[in-house]
Design a binder for these strands. Structure first.
Lengths: 223, 223
DNA sequence: ACCAATAGATAGCAGCACTATCGACAGTGG
DNA sequence: CCACTGTCGATAGTGCTGCTATCTATTGGT
């Protein structure tokens, strides 16, 4: 198929497709002439993958390139593909490194949960950075809630992996599954969390501010 | 205090502080002379809040402005502050709108969970967009896992709100708590999810690919 | 034969988050 | 009193990212 058809089927502008090929997000199409190439169904699904990572996952182009490289390299095992996807996720790159105390807190949490984890896991630094932000705001009560969050995270992780193992025999397919699941999973959990937050906020009827009847007046705006 | 002290205490360059004041992320300091102003402790904590939202939460400046405006406006109730924080989170703005079928699936999930939620909730569109990305990749099995994710999301949401109600009497303090909790909570859950993923992947020993012994050879790299 | 479409290369552009520079002045040590 | 460092506010500039526009040589379709 030609570029216009690929563009139409993926909802992506031809110029953008060319750009993706240049950037290595999309493999070059097979040449059939001086100015004719032939895109395949493989390109369609790869383009869908790229757009999902960019649009829904919010990944920058460079990260997407790293991820698809891991998917395409048959020498990369599923665990490493998952690692690549994890490292690709937008994770506090401009931020200062996490403090040792927060790192220690996270590591203690990991131990308390009975988790086994290597040092390189980016989640550790990310969680520690969150704790740092929290204490910088003068709050400390988050530590008590950590096990609750950790338990929820484990439930999510089990659901994640339950979706991968079924077709673990097909390496390419499951590599894609791992990537999409890891990246889009963050967005899914975040979205569901927003819905659940509103539900819980409405359900537990917070005595909508016990002692300060001011400012409750403004007409209810959808949260 | 003068700008250099504020810069030092917050780890932010003076030029950046000036920029934030211009952009309305930080209130202007009180003038004490032609070229002398006096920053307060309030500025320190506000700057910490802004940096946390930017560095850890990854929010763009414009979103941070909207969030702090909601926090500062005493006429904005806590529910609306939470709504502002939710809408501020990076959520698929460049992406195409979610398909009706995915929206319907999310709404059915919401009903099945017994959740009550208004139309404007950005989580619905976000979750639907994730489903769209998923089906665009030719996978449909995600729907079966949705209730699992929803349950985990509710656990998280309950933990979120349990941290807010305690000091719901202090509107300003709890407004900050809501914002930081909503924004940093996403990052925290995401980080813990990465750790849990690695743990579960190692613990359940995926029979590391049942029928395809190829490509397992590369030396174990920390995922 | 004609014309729209294509490939590939290069240049340009808009947005974002800062950062650098400037001129006028203030506060402080000597 | 006076040099000198620090400060304020304003404006302009920078580096990066993610495309988009333009150009030329060529080609398939009618």
């Amino acid at each position: 198929m030609r570029i216009s058809e690929l563009a139409e089927r993926s909802g992506t502008a031809p110029a953008t497709i060319k750009f993706y090929v240049r950037e290595g997000l999309l493999p070059p199409a097979e040449k059939t002439g001086y100015n004719q190439v032939s895109y395949t169904e493989e390109h369609v699904r790869r383009l869908h993958l790229v757009r999902a990572l960019v649009d829904v996952g919010g990944l920058p182009i460079a990260r997407v390139r790293a991820v698809v490289a891991a998917v395409d390299d048959p020498g990369t095992g599923l665990q490493e593909v998952m690692g690549a996807a994890q490292r690709a996720l937008p994770g506090r790159e401009g931020a200062p490194p996490p403090s040792p105390s927060s790192l220690a807190a996270v590591e203690e949490l990991v131990r308390a949960q009975g988790w086994a984890v290597l040092d390189g896991n980016p989640g550790v630094a990310q969680a520690a950075a969150v704790l740092d932000g929290w204490v910088a705001m003068g709050r400390k009560d988050l530590f008590d809630s950590l096990p609750e969050y950790a338990r929820a995270a484990e439930v999510v992780a089990r659901a994640d992996l339950a979706r991968v193992w079924p077709d673990a025999a097909d390496r390419d397919r499951s590599a894609e599954t791992v990537v999409v699941g890891t990246v889009l999973g963050d967005a899914l959990v975040a979205g569901l969390r927003r819905i659940a937050q509103e539900h819980v906020a409405r359900a537990t009827r917070p005595t909508t501010r016990p002692a300060t009847p001011t400012a409750t007046s403004t007409p209810e705006e959808p949260s």
